Computed example of a mutant assay.
Amino acid sequence: MDKLLLQQQVLERLAEDLLQADQAARAAHETATHEENIAENKYDTLGLEAAYLATGQARRAEAIRQAIAHWQQFRPRPYNASEGIQLGALVCLVDAGNKPQQLFLGPDGGSMKLVCGSELVQVISSKAPLGRAMLGKCEGDEVSIPVQQFEVLWVH
């Protein structure tokens, strides 16, 4: 499986998310500043609520911009068994029921599912609980988080 292709898919998805966040921030800003939404009394809070929403959407857009920058600078490296799982690893875990799950460990802004060929790949951050738990592990090692336990089936 091509890690650079997965990285490109992540960047495309983040670009789509950024477009949506920017549009939502603009729409909320327009609502907040529209003349019909000027408060007439202390209970008239539509403009204030829209302003809070616009601020939140702007923060979300900025977080996505930062994630895009991190993913653009990111260079997935080949797996090195002496270092164990590191940022950029493509990992297959199996749970207690022998259900496999493929994960691509990337910088922040992950948490999305991608399709590569016929395979489904979950992108997670190394800051996520499962991502942190996988760091340094090798094939055959167990990875545990409070709710679940996995075995590392293979790493690329």
Rank of each mutant, 00 (worst) to 15 (best):
D108M: 12
F74A: 03
D95S: 01
Q57Y: 14
A128N: 03
I145F: 05
W154R: 07
Y79C: 09
S144P: 05
Q102L: 14
C116Y: 04
L48W: 14
V123M: 09
V143H: 09
K137T: 07
A32T: 12
E16T: 01
I145D: 14
V155N: 03
L87K: 07
G97W: 13
W71P: 04
A51W: 00
P78A: 15
Q73S: 13
G97L: 12
P107I: 00
C92I: 12
H29I: 02
K3A: 06
E139F: 02
A96T: 10
P107N: 03
L46N: 07
A69I: 04
Y79A: 02
A58C: 07
I85G: 00
T31K: 08
I38Q: 08
R77Y: 04
D22M: 03
S144W: 13
E36G: 04
G106F: 06
I68K: 05
M112K: 13
L46S: 03
A24R: 10
V10D: 03
R26V: 00
K42Y: 07
G88Q: 08
F150A: 05
E142S: 01
G88A: 02
V147L: 15
H156A: 01
N98Q: 15
A51D: 09
L14H: 03
L153T: 03
A15P: 05
L114R: 09
E49N: 09
P129K: 05
S144M: 13
Q7N: 03
P78Y: 03
A54R: 01
K3V: 08
L135I: 15
D44P: 02
P76V: 08
Q9A: 10
A61K: 01
G131E: 11
E12T: 04
L6I: 10
T45M: 11
M134Q: 05
W71R: 00
L87T: 05
R59Q: 15
A25W: 13
L18C: 07
E30M: 05
A39N: 09
D2M: 01
